[in-house]
Structure formats: structure tokens, C-alpha cells
Simulated scan of single mutants.
Amino acid sequence: MQLDFSTVLPYWLVLLKGLGLTLAFTSSCAVIGSLAGFVLSLLRMSPSRWMKAATTLYVEFFRGTPLLIQLFWVFFCFPVVFRLPIPPYLSVVISLTLYMAAITSETFRGALKSISAEQHDACIALSLSPQAKILYVIFPQALLRAIPPFLSNIVSLFKESALISSVGVADLMFVGQNISNSTARPVEFLTTVAMIYFLVAFPLTRLVGVVETRFLRRFAY
């Protein structure tokens, strides 16, 4: 077999559409999951033992089980358990969001613990309400300190999103695999797909180091 990467060129628009769908799932689930993860991190630090235990169980379960199993469970079991038809796109959003919330909650929990006690004392001295304290004092500092691991979480979510092809969603991996099967050129197309994932993920991984060294050390601590 002779390699011929020119066979990829006629399909580049289709591959870009698959990449667009992958990025859409990644970005939307990252935003929703991160907001849910911040709420989870607050609940895990709650004085209520039941609330802390429930949220800890959720986080450890989704961090300790493969994302593929979570995706299959939502796709195949949700319609049976809740007796509601769930389209593949919605099952992908649910599973990726639940996973992102779990891994991001640990990021925010570490950032929240790094905030000094003087910040909380200052909020009490200023008679700030709990909502104002979280919104204007705690959340901005926690978000700033959580940026490097948060970006790493997004990169991980982007790479893990290749699993959604297993439920028939036409993302980049699904499109590349189908084209490679129909053209009998798996090496060319799967290599191209891998390079596209790399070209998107690598700049983000480098950005983590740049943000941490040039920005966070100056403003976060």
C-alpha cells in the first residue's frame, strides 16, 4: 500500500464540519459544566454532612468511571429509566456536561481553598451578604487561580469528545472514520484526524504555561 494524502483534499470541508461540531460540543459543555462545577465545589465545602457526602459521591463517581460508559449509560439507559426519548445530540451534551462538572469542581475546590481567611473576614467586616461575597469576592479570585487547570480540563474534554462518535454523532472522529472506511484509506484519514486534534489541542496546552507564568503569578496571589 502506497500512502497518498492527496486523497484527503476532496473531503476537507466535511472534516471541517466535523471539527466544528466537535468544538461546539466542547465549548458549550465546558461553559455549562464549569458553572455547575463551581456550584458543586461550594456544596462540597458545605457544613452539611449530607450535602457534602452527596456531592463528593457524584464527583468521585464521574471522575472514577470511564467517560465512554457514562456516555453509553445516558444514551441507552436514560430513555429506559425516564421513559423519554433522548436524541443522540442531547445525550452527548448531558454526559459531557456531567463529566466536565465533576472534574472542574475539583479545580474550583482547590482554588477556593487557596483563598486566605482574611478575605472571608473582610467580607464579614463589610457586612456583605453571602451572595455578594461569592459573586464579587470569592468567584473572581477562584476563577483567576483556576485558569491553568481549567484550560487543561478543556483540552481533556476536547480529546475525550472523540468518544461521541460511538453513538452516531457526526463529529470529527465519526466523519474521519466513515470516510476512511468508504475510501479504504484508513492511514491517511485517521492520521489527518489525529493531526487536526493535535493542532487544536497543542496551542491550548502551551497557553496554560503562558497564562500561568506571565499573568497569574502577577495578579492571582
Rank of each mutant, 00 (worst) to 15 (best):
Q2N: 12
D4F: 06
F5C: 05
S6M: 06
S6D: 13
S6I: 01
V8E: 10
L9C: 04
P10M: 10
P10W: 04
Y11N: 06
Y11F: 04
L16W: 03
K17D: 00
K17P: 01
G18E: 02
L19E: 09
G20I: 03
T22C: 04
F25C: 01
T26N: 10
S27I: 11
S28Y: 05
C29E: 06
I32T: 06
G33C: 08
L35M: 15
G37K: 08
L40A: 02
L42V: 12
R44A: 05
R44I: 10
M45F: 02
S46G: 12
P47S: 09
W50C: 10
W50K: 08
M51R: 08
A53K: 00
A53L: 02
T56D: 09
T56R: 12
L57E: 00
Y58L: 10
V59F: 03
V59G: 00
F61L: 12
F62K: 05
R63Q: 06
P66N: 07
L68M: 15
I69D: 05
F72I: 11
W73I: 13
W73G: 02
W73F: 11
V74C: 06
F75Q: 01
F78P: 07
P79Q: 04
V80L: 08
V80H: 06
F82L: 07
P85K: 03
I86A: 04
P87K: 10
Y89R: 04
S91Y: 08
S91K: 04
V92K: 05
V93C: 09
I94D: 12
I94V: 15
L96N: 05
Y99L: 14
A101L: 11
A102M: 15
A102H: 14
I103K: 07
R109A: 14
R109I: 09
R109W: 14
K113R: 11
S116I: 07
S116T: 11
S116P: 01
E118N: 12
H120I: 03
I124F: 06
I124P: 01
S127P: 00
I134M: 15
I134Y: 06
I134G: 14
I134N: 12
L135A: 15
I138D: 01
F139K: 14
P140H: 08
P140K: 12
Q141H: 09
Q141E: 07
A142P: 13
L143T: 12
L144H: 12
L144D: 03
R145H: 15
R145I: 09
R145G: 15
A146T: 06
I147Y: 14
P149E: 05
I154N: 05
V155P: 11
V155S: 11
V155Y: 09
F158D: 11
K159W: 05
E160P: 03
S161T: 08
S165W: 13
V167S: 15
G168N: 13
L172N: 04
M173T: 13
F174M: 07
F174Y: 14
A184N: 10
P186D: 11
V187C: 00
L190F: 09
M195F: 09
F198Q: 02
L199C: 10
L199P: 05
T205W: 02
T205M: 01
R206N: 05
L207E: 00
V208D: 00
V210F: 00
F215H: 00
R217V: 07
